[in-house]
Protein backbone atom coordinates (compact mmCIF):
# COMPACT_ATOMS: atom_id res chain seq x y z
CA UNK A 1 0.00 0.00 0.00
CA UNK A 2 1.53 3.27 -1.06
CA UNK A 3 1.66 6.20 1.26
CA UNK A 4 -0.70 8.21 -0.90
CA UNK A 5 -3.24 5.48 -0.95
CA UNK A 6 -2.98 5.00 2.78
CA UNK A 7 -3.45 8.70 3.34
CA UNK A 8 -6.49 8.78 1.11
CA UNK A 9 -8.26 6.06 3.09
CA UNK A 10 -7.13 7.25 6.46
CA UNK A 11 -10.62 7.91 7.74
CA UNK A 12 -12.15 5.07 5.83
CA UNK A 13 -11.01 1.87 7.58
CA UNK A 14 -14.00 1.54 9.84
CA UNK A 15 -16.36 2.00 6.93
CA UNK A 16 -14.49 -0.58 4.90
CA UNK A 17 -14.54 -2.89 7.85
CA UNK A 18 -18.23 -2.62 8.48
CA UNK A 19 -19.41 -2.03 4.95
CA UNK A 20 -19.02 -5.48 3.41
CA UNK A 21 -19.93 -7.17 6.65
CA UNK A 22 -23.75 -7.05 6.71
CA UNK A 23 -24.30 -8.96 3.48
CA UNK A 24 -22.38 -12.17 4.27
CA UNK A 25 -23.78 -12.16 7.80
CA UNK A 26 -27.25 -13.02 6.57
CA UNK A 27 -25.92 -16.39 5.49
CA UNK A 28 -23.35 -17.06 8.21
CA UNK A 29 -23.58 -17.27 11.96
CA UNK A 30 -23.52 -13.96 13.75
CA UNK A 31 -20.25 -14.37 15.66
CA UNK A 32 -18.46 -15.37 12.45
CA UNK A 33 -19.80 -12.36 10.61
CA UNK A 34 -18.85 -10.06 13.43
CA UNK A 35 -15.37 -11.55 13.63
CA UNK A 36 -14.99 -11.10 9.87
CA UNK A 37 -15.91 -7.45 10.16
CA UNK A 38 -13.44 -6.92 12.95
CA UNK A 39 -10.74 -8.78 11.07
CA UNK A 40 -11.09 -6.55 8.01
CA UNK A 41 -10.98 -3.52 10.27
CA UNK A 42 -7.85 -4.72 12.01
CA UNK A 43 -6.17 -5.59 8.72
CA UNK A 44 -6.69 -2.08 7.41
CA UNK A 45 -5.43 -0.71 10.70
CA UNK A 46 -2.34 -2.91 10.68
CA UNK A 47 -1.61 -1.92 7.10
CA UNK A 48 -1.90 1.72 8.04
CA UNK A 49 0.14 1.23 11.16
CA UNK A 50 2.99 -0.71 9.62
CA UNK A 51 3.41 1.93 6.96
CA UNK A 52 3.32 4.70 9.52
CA UNK A 53 6.68 5.92 10.81
CA UNK A 54 7.63 4.91 14.35
CA UNK A 55 4.38 2.99 14.94
CA UNK A 56 5.93 -0.35 15.83
CA UNK A 57 8.32 0.97 18.42
CA UNK A 58 8.30 0.12 22.10
CA UNK A 59 7.90 3.78 23.00
CA UNK A 60 4.86 4.09 20.77
CA UNK A 61 3.19 0.97 22.19
CA UNK A 62 3.77 2.42 25.63
CA UNK A 63 2.23 5.66 24.50
CA UNK A 64 -0.85 3.87 23.19
CA UNK A 65 -1.28 1.89 26.41
CA UNK A 66 -0.78 4.97 28.55
CA UNK A 67 -3.30 6.99 26.59
CA UNK A 68 -5.81 4.13 26.86
CA UNK A 69 -5.60 3.82 30.62
CA UNK A 70 -7.54 6.86 31.86
CA UNK A 71 -10.54 6.45 29.57
CA UNK A 72 -10.24 2.66 29.67
CA UNK A 73 -10.69 2.32 33.43
CA UNK A 74 -13.89 4.39 33.32
CA UNK A 75 -15.11 2.54 30.23
CA UNK A 76 -14.75 -0.84 31.98
CA UNK A 77 -17.07 0.41 34.72
CA UNK A 78 -19.47 1.92 32.19
CA UNK A 79 -19.68 -1.50 30.51
CA UNK A 80 -21.37 -2.98 33.56
CA UNK A 81 -23.88 -0.14 33.67
CA UNK A 82 -24.68 -0.56 29.98
CA UNK A 83 -25.03 -4.35 30.21
CA UNK A 84 -27.47 -3.88 33.10
CA UNK A 85 -29.68 -1.88 30.77
CA UNK A 86 -29.04 1.45 32.50
CA UNK A 87 -27.73 2.83 29.18
CA UNK A 88 -25.08 5.42 30.06
CA UNK A 89 -24.13 7.95 32.68
CA UNK A 90 -23.75 11.49 31.41
CA UNK A 91 -22.30 12.67 34.74
CA UNK A 92 -19.00 10.82 34.37
CA UNK A 93 -16.63 13.73 33.71
CA UNK A 94 -18.10 15.80 36.51
CA UNK A 95 -17.78 12.92 38.98
CA UNK A 96 -14.15 12.37 38.00
CA UNK A 97 -13.47 16.07 38.50
CA UNK A 98 -15.00 16.18 41.97
CA UNK A 99 -13.09 13.05 42.96
CA UNK A 100 -9.84 14.55 41.67
CA UNK A 101 -10.41 17.70 43.72
CA UNK A 102 -11.19 15.75 46.86
CA UNK A 103 -8.12 13.62 46.30
CA UNK A 104 -5.80 16.60 45.96
CA UNK A 105 -7.41 18.51 48.81
CA UNK A 106 -6.89 15.61 51.21
CA UNK A 107 -3.28 14.85 50.26
CA UNK A 108 -1.98 16.08 53.63
CA UNK A 109 -3.90 13.18 55.30
CA UNK A 110 -1.68 10.70 53.50
CA UNK A 111 -2.02 8.93 50.18
CA UNK A 112 -4.02 6.00 51.61
CA UNK A 113 -6.61 8.19 53.28
CA UNK A 114 -6.87 10.50 50.30
CA UNK A 115 -7.43 7.55 47.95
CA UNK A 116 -10.01 6.07 50.27
CA UNK A 117 -11.92 9.34 50.57
CA UNK A 118 -11.85 9.85 46.81
CA UNK A 119 -13.02 6.33 45.96
CA UNK A 120 -15.71 6.44 48.64
CA UNK A 121 -17.00 9.72 47.25
CA UNK A 122 -17.08 8.39 43.69
CA UNK A 123 -18.84 5.20 44.76
CA UNK A 124 -21.38 7.02 46.94
CA UNK A 125 -22.37 9.63 44.37
CA UNK A 126 -22.64 7.09 41.55
CA UNK A 127 -24.31 4.29 43.54
CA UNK A 128 -26.95 6.78 44.65
CA UNK A 129 -27.84 7.39 41.00
CA UNK A 130 -27.85 3.63 40.50
CA UNK A 131 -30.33 3.24 43.36
CA UNK A 132 -32.70 5.76 41.80
CA UNK A 133 -32.46 3.90 38.47
CA UNK A 134 -32.63 0.42 40.00
CA UNK A 135 -35.31 0.81 42.64
CA UNK A 136 -37.46 3.58 41.17
CA UNK A 137 -36.95 2.88 37.51
CA UNK A 138 -35.75 6.41 36.70
CA UNK A 139 -34.60 7.17 33.18
CA UNK A 140 -30.80 7.02 33.52
CA UNK A 141 -30.12 9.62 30.83
CA UNK A 142 -32.38 12.24 32.34
CA UNK A 143 -31.16 11.40 35.82
CA UNK A 144 -27.46 11.61 35.00
CA UNK A 145 -27.87 14.86 33.08
CA UNK A 146 -29.37 16.33 36.24
CA UNK A 147 -26.74 14.68 38.44
CA UNK A 148 -24.01 15.97 36.11
CA UNK A 149 -25.16 19.55 36.63
CA UNK A 150 -25.42 19.06 40.38
CA UNK A 151 -22.00 17.46 40.69
CA UNK A 152 -20.38 19.97 38.33
CA UNK A 153 -21.96 22.78 40.35
CA UNK A 154 -20.62 21.17 43.49
CA UNK A 155 -17.14 21.09 41.98
CA UNK A 156 -17.26 24.78 41.10
CA UNK A 157 -18.57 25.64 44.56
CA UNK A 158 -15.96 23.45 46.25
CA UNK A 159 -13.06 24.96 44.31
CA UNK A 160 -14.40 28.48 44.09
CA UNK A 161 -13.74 28.25 40.38
CA UNK A 162 -9.97 28.21 40.85
CA UNK A 163 -7.62 25.26 40.47
CA UNK A 164 -7.21 22.99 43.50
CA UNK A 165 -3.56 22.47 44.45
CA UNK A 166 -2.35 19.80 46.87
CA UNK A 167 -0.45 20.78 50.01
CA UNK A 168 1.90 17.82 49.66
CA UNK A 169 2.69 15.68 46.68
CA UNK A 170 2.20 12.22 48.12
CA UNK A 171 0.42 11.31 44.88
CA UNK A 172 3.66 11.39 42.90
CA UNK A 173 4.04 7.65 43.47
CA UNK A 174 0.96 7.14 41.24
CA UNK A 175 2.87 8.63 38.33
CA UNK A 176 5.60 6.01 38.62
CA UNK A 177 6.27 3.70 35.70
CA UNK A 178 7.22 0.22 36.92
CA UNK A 179 8.69 -1.88 34.09
CA UNK A 180 8.39 1.15 31.87
CA UNK A 181 4.60 1.33 31.94
CA UNK A 182 2.53 3.84 33.88
CA UNK A 183 0.86 2.48 37.01
CA UNK A 184 -2.54 3.37 35.48
CA UNK A 185 -2.01 0.72 32.78
CA UNK A 186 -1.67 -1.99 35.43
CA UNK A 187 -4.79 -0.70 37.16
CA UNK A 188 -6.62 -0.80 33.83
CA UNK A 189 -5.64 -4.41 33.20
CA UNK A 190 -6.54 -5.53 36.72
CA UNK A 191 -9.86 -3.67 36.54
CA UNK A 192 -10.69 -5.30 33.23
CA UNK A 193 -9.80 -8.75 34.57
CA UNK A 194 -11.88 -8.27 37.72
CA UNK A 195 -14.85 -6.91 35.76
CA UNK A 196 -14.70 -9.77 33.29
CA UNK A 197 -14.58 -12.30 36.10
CA UNK A 198 -17.50 -10.67 37.91
CA UNK A 199 -19.56 -10.61 34.74
CA UNK A 200 -18.96 -14.19 33.69
CA UNK A 201 -18.46 -16.02 36.94
CA UNK A 202 -20.60 -14.49 39.65
CA UNK A 203 -24.29 -14.67 40.35
CA UNK A 204 -24.55 -10.90 40.32
CA UNK A 205 -22.84 -10.76 36.93
CA UNK A 206 -25.24 -13.28 35.43
CA UNK A 207 -28.17 -11.38 36.87
CA UNK A 208 -26.79 -8.18 35.37
CA UNK A 209 -27.15 -9.65 31.88
CA UNK A 210 -30.67 -10.93 32.62
CA UNK A 211 -31.82 -7.56 33.94
CA UNK A 212 -30.36 -5.79 30.93
CA UNK A 213 -31.95 -8.24 28.50
CA UNK A 214 -35.51 -7.90 29.84
CA UNK A 215 -36.11 -5.81 32.89
CA UNK A 216 -39.88 -6.43 33.26
CA UNK A 217 -39.21 -10.17 33.08
CA UNK A 218 -36.45 -9.89 35.69
CA UNK A 219 -38.82 -7.97 37.95
CA UNK A 220 -41.64 -10.47 37.49
CA UNK A 221 -39.24 -13.34 38.15
CA UNK A 222 -38.32 -11.76 41.47
CA UNK A 223 -34.67 -11.13 40.63
CA UNK A 224 -32.98 -8.50 42.85
CA UNK A 225 -33.15 -5.82 40.15
CA UNK A 226 -32.51 -2.89 42.48
CA UNK A 227 -29.62 -4.45 44.37
CA UNK A 228 -27.77 -5.69 41.30
CA UNK A 229 -28.23 -2.36 39.52
CA UNK A 230 -26.78 -0.51 42.51
CA UNK A 231 -23.79 -2.90 42.58
CA UNK A 232 -23.09 -2.23 38.91
CA UNK A 233 -23.24 1.53 39.43
CA UNK A 234 -21.09 1.31 42.55
CA UNK A 235 -18.41 -0.55 40.58
CA UNK A 236 -18.70 2.09 37.89
CA UNK A 237 -18.29 4.79 40.55
CA UNK A 238 -15.11 3.15 41.81
CA UNK A 239 -13.76 3.08 38.25
CA UNK A 240 -14.58 6.74 37.66
CA UNK A 241 -12.92 7.58 40.98
CA UNK A 242 -9.74 5.76 39.94
CA UNK A 243 -9.68 7.69 36.69
CA UNK A 244 -10.19 10.89 38.66
CA UNK A 245 -7.29 10.03 40.97
CA UNK A 246 -4.94 9.35 38.06
CA UNK A 247 -6.06 12.52 36.28
CA UNK A 248 -5.32 14.51 39.44
CA UNK A 249 -1.90 12.94 39.90
CA UNK A 250 -1.02 13.41 36.26
CA UNK A 251 -2.03 17.07 36.19
CA UNK A 252 -0.90 17.79 39.80
CA UNK A 253 -3.84 20.16 40.10
CA UNK A 254 -7.55 20.03 39.37
CA UNK A 255 -9.81 22.56 37.67
CA UNK A 256 -13.52 22.23 36.99
CA UNK A 257 -12.76 21.22 33.40
CA UNK A 258 -10.38 18.42 34.38
CA UNK A 259 -12.84 15.67 33.35
CA UNK A 260 -12.93 17.04 29.81
CA UNK A 261 -14.48 14.69 27.28
CA UNK A 262 -14.23 11.65 29.56
CA UNK A 263 -17.99 11.03 29.50
CA UNK A 264 -18.30 10.54 25.77
CA UNK A 265 -14.85 8.96 25.35
CA UNK A 266 -15.81 6.21 27.78
CA UNK A 267 -19.14 5.64 26.05
CA UNK A 268 -17.34 5.45 22.70
CA UNK A 269 -14.95 2.79 24.01
CA UNK A 270 -17.84 0.68 25.35
CA UNK A 271 -19.74 0.97 22.09
CA UNK A 272 -16.72 0.17 19.92
CA UNK A 273 -16.32 -2.92 22.08
CA UNK A 274 -19.70 -4.03 20.77
CA UNK A 275 -21.69 -3.85 23.99
CA UNK A 276 -25.39 -3.44 23.22
CA UNK A 277 -26.61 0.00 24.23
CA UNK A 278 -29.97 -1.53 25.18
CA UNK A 279 -28.29 -3.94 27.57
CA UNK A 280 -28.00 -7.70 27.94
CA UNK A 281 -24.91 -8.21 25.81
CA UNK A 282 -21.27 -7.19 26.04
CA UNK A 283 -18.08 -7.87 27.95
CA UNK A 284 -15.35 -6.03 29.80
CA UNK A 285 -12.58 -7.49 27.66
CA UNK A 286 -14.28 -6.27 24.52
CA UNK A 287 -14.48 -2.80 26.00
CA UNK A 288 -10.76 -3.01 26.71
CA UNK A 289 -10.30 -3.92 23.04
CA UNK A 290 -12.49 -1.02 22.02
CA UNK A 291 -10.52 1.44 24.12
CA UNK A 292 -7.21 0.15 22.72
CA UNK A 293 -8.51 0.34 19.17
CA UNK A 294 -9.57 3.96 19.59
CA UNK A 295 -6.18 4.84 21.07
CA UNK A 296 -4.31 2.99 18.34
CA UNK A 297 -6.24 4.73 15.59
CA UNK A 298 -5.69 8.14 17.18
CA UNK A 299 -2.02 7.25 17.48
CA UNK A 300 -1.69 6.22 13.82
CA UNK A 301 -3.38 9.40 12.68
CA UNK A 302 -1.15 11.42 14.95
CA UNK A 303 1.99 9.74 13.59
CA UNK A 304 0.79 10.41 10.07
CA UNK A 305 0.49 14.06 10.93
CA UNK A 306 -3.27 14.46 10.89
CA UNK A 307 -4.79 17.17 13.02
CA UNK A 308 -6.74 16.54 16.23
CA UNK A 309 -9.88 17.24 14.28
CA UNK A 310 -9.29 14.31 11.96
CA UNK A 311 -8.58 12.06 14.95
CA UNK A 312 -11.90 12.95 16.55
CA UNK A 313 -13.66 12.54 13.22
CA UNK A 314 -12.16 9.06 12.81
CA UNK A 315 -13.32 8.15 16.31
CA UNK A 316 -16.83 9.24 15.42
CA UNK A 317 -16.88 7.21 12.22
CA UNK A 318 -15.57 4.16 14.06
CA UNK A 319 -18.25 4.37 16.77
CA UNK A 320 -20.93 4.85 14.13
CA UNK A 321 -19.71 1.85 12.13
CA UNK A 322 -19.66 -0.46 15.15
CA UNK A 323 -23.03 0.72 16.43
CA UNK A 324 -24.60 0.14 13.01
CA UNK A 325 -22.97 -3.29 12.78
CA UNK A 326 -24.21 -4.30 16.22
CA UNK A 327 -27.66 -2.95 15.43
CA UNK A 328 -27.88 -4.83 12.12
CA UNK A 329 -26.73 -7.96 13.89
CA UNK A 330 -29.31 -7.83 16.67
CA UNK A 331 -32.26 -6.76 14.53
CA UNK A 332 -31.48 -9.51 12.03
CA UNK A 333 -31.44 -12.14 14.74
CA UNK A 334 -34.74 -10.78 16.12
CA UNK A 335 -36.56 -11.30 12.88
Amino acid sequence: MSTDNGRGTATAPPVQGAGPHPSPSSAGRRPTAFAAGLAVLLLVLVALAVTAPRFATVDNVRAILASTAFVGITAIGATLVMIAGSVVSLATAQTATVVAMLFLATQHLGLGTATLVAVAAGVAVTALQGAVVGYWNANPIVLTIAAGFAIGGGATWFSGGTPVYPRTSAFEVLNSTPLGLPLSVYVLLVTAAVAQWVLSRTTAGRQLYLIGENRPAATAAGLPVGRVTVLAWAFFGACVAMTGIFLASFNTSATVTLGGTLTLDAIAAVLVGGTAIAGGHGSALRTLGGALLISAISDVLLLRGFSTGVQILAKGVLVLAVVITVHVRTTRSRR
Binding site: T203, R206, Q207, Y209, L210, E213, N214, P216, A217, A218, A220, A221, G222, L223, G280, H281, T330, S333, R334
Partner: peptide, 21 residues
Protein backbone atom coordinates in the same frame (compact mmCIF):
# COMPACT_ATOMS: atom_id res chain seq x y z
CA UNK B 1 -42.26 -12.40 25.48
CA UNK B 2 -42.21 -9.14 27.38
CA UNK B 3 -42.67 -10.31 30.94
CA UNK B 4 -41.28 -13.80 30.99
CA UNK B 5 -38.34 -14.99 28.99
CA UNK B 6 -34.97 -13.46 28.25
CA UNK B 7 -35.41 -13.93 24.53
CA UNK B 8 -31.91 -13.12 23.33
CA UNK B 9 -30.32 -15.56 25.76
CA UNK B 10 -29.78 -19.28 25.65
CA UNK B 11 -32.22 -21.89 26.89
CA UNK B 12 -29.77 -22.79 29.65
CA UNK B 13 -29.51 -19.23 30.92
CA UNK B 14 -33.27 -18.94 30.91
CA UNK B 15 -33.84 -22.20 32.74
CA UNK B 16 -31.37 -21.16 35.43
CA UNK B 17 -32.31 -17.48 35.60
CA UNK B 18 -34.16 -17.66 38.90
CA UNK B 19 -32.01 -20.22 40.69
CA UNK B 20 -28.52 -18.76 40.31
CA UNK B 21 -27.83 -18.22 44.02
Amino acid sequence: KSEGLFLGMSVERNLLATRLP
